[in-house]
């Protein structure tokens, strides 16, 4: 919670991130919060712990486009808890509100270039805020140059720290990294060990052609075609089951 002084009685009035109006609890004056001239520091709390994100990583690694058994074979070498900064600007451009998100820290980590503020319970970031032991990535890009470049007039500007888990893992002697957003569990990855669709396509393609041919054959010799079809059904099912489990 941040606070400001009541314009009427001078009492300290607390307000939350999304508040546009607050009411002074002493003199019950209503106060409009004008954020256009100030810069705010916000942070999102961690909603996921280390076990959660490792589980999310394993679910992601078990996905259909990831290398088979990546969830079991990937060796996690480090799991780091970090706060990453971005700038959030709300501007009035010709009477319409526009939101701009700009980088505040330089990074090569995946997902952090997508420049968005993940949804979450934005809290005012001050010395009372509990960072839960996370490493704070320092903003190394200034806010001022953006302010002069952006269109329209200021409504609000803020530096937002959002919580991430950085997971380094090794698969077949190669190091990879993923970033998991600690508010929603969204996984960001750059390069990852992939899986070929070849076996899947082969089963589907060969099966389709076999049934097509057998269907044409059924006009001349329905019995032969029927026997072949039954065999193909069994063959496709066994092959598919093997591929789905093992490849």
């Amino acid at each position: 919670m941040a606070s400001l002084k009541c314009t009427k009685c001078g009492a300290s009035v607390e307000f939350d991130t999304g508040d546009k109006f607050v009411k002074c609890s002493y003199c019950s004056s209503q106060i409009f919060i004008d954020r256009s001239g100030a810069g705010f520091y916000y942070a999102l709390p961690f909603a996921m712990n280390e076990n959660d994100v490792v589980g999310v990583f394993r679910r992601w690694a078990g996905g259909s486009t990831r290398a088979k058994d990546l969830d079991k074979l990937a060796q996690i070498s480090s799991v780091k808890k970090q706060y990453f900064p971005v700038y959030l600007f709300k501007r009035d451009v010709n009477g319409a509100e526009q939101v701009f998100v700009e980088p505040a820290g330089s990074t090569t980590l995946p997902g952090l270039h997508s420049l968005k503020v993940p949804g979450g319970d934005l809290k005012v970031f001050d010395d009372k805020f509990d960072t839960a032991g996370a490493e704070m990535i320092k903003p190394d890009i200034e806010m001022a140059p953006y302010l002069s470049k952006l269109p329209g007039t200021a409504k609000e500007q803020a530096l937002v720290y959002f919580p991430i888990w950085k997971i380094d893992y090794v698969f077949e002697q190669k190091a990879y990294v993923v970033v998991v957003s600690a508010t929603s569990g969204e996984v960001f990855s750059g390069e990852f060990p992939g899986r070929s669709s070849g076996a899947y396509m082969a089963v589907a393609g060969i099966g389709f052609v076999a049934f097509l041919v057998e269907g044409l054959l059924a006009i001349g010799s329905p019995v032969v075609a029927g026997v072949l079809m039954a065999a193909t059904i069994a063959a496709v099912f066994i092959a598919a089951n093997y591929v789905a489990r093992r490849m």
Partner: peptide, 9 residues
């Protein structure tokens, strides 16, 4: 610039 604007009639 002040952060708070009092709303009085």
């Amino acid at each position: 610039m002040s952060l708070s604007v009092g709303l009085n009639c």
